[in-house]
Amino acid sequence: MLTNQASFKRDGVQDFVTVRATAIIMTAFTFYMLWFFLSTPTVTYEIWHDLFSSLAMKVFTFAALLSIMMHIRIGFWQVLTDYVKAPGIRAVVQFFINLVAFSYVAVGLFVLWGL
């Protein structure tokens, strides 16, 4: 079987790896935030704002948001191909889910930009 490596199309192996790679980034972000809330007795606006003002935290947050989008896209593709067999309906549902997932990233990016 001639494997076609010339196209940009994703394959199952890449999706398998992406789901797990993004999961690691998101879990790291989750544990970091958990540590932040446990180690900060009272969270004030200044503390909260300064947390997200450092370049490193902006990159980390943006990476987490991108990971969320990719995780959602692949995860919901798996769910929808299992449960929504009608291609027309599935395409519409996938479109809206992916659009919302993208807007999470867009909102995050523009908020981070302004900090």
């Binding site: 606006y45 909260w48 704002h49 997200f52 969320i68 959602i72 919901f76 889910i97 919302v100 997932a101 999470y104 909102v107 995050g108 908020v111 302004g114 900090l115």
Partner: peptide, 24 residues
């Protein structure tokens, strides 16, 4: 969780952008 994220992202965006948003 996908729908819960609507609240999470909104709450984060509001709270980190302004003191009033944080208070709200």
């Amino acid at each position: 969780m996908f729908f819960a994220l609507l609240f999470v992202i909104w709450a984060w965006a509001e709270s980190v952008s302004s003191p009033d948003g944080f208070a709200f």
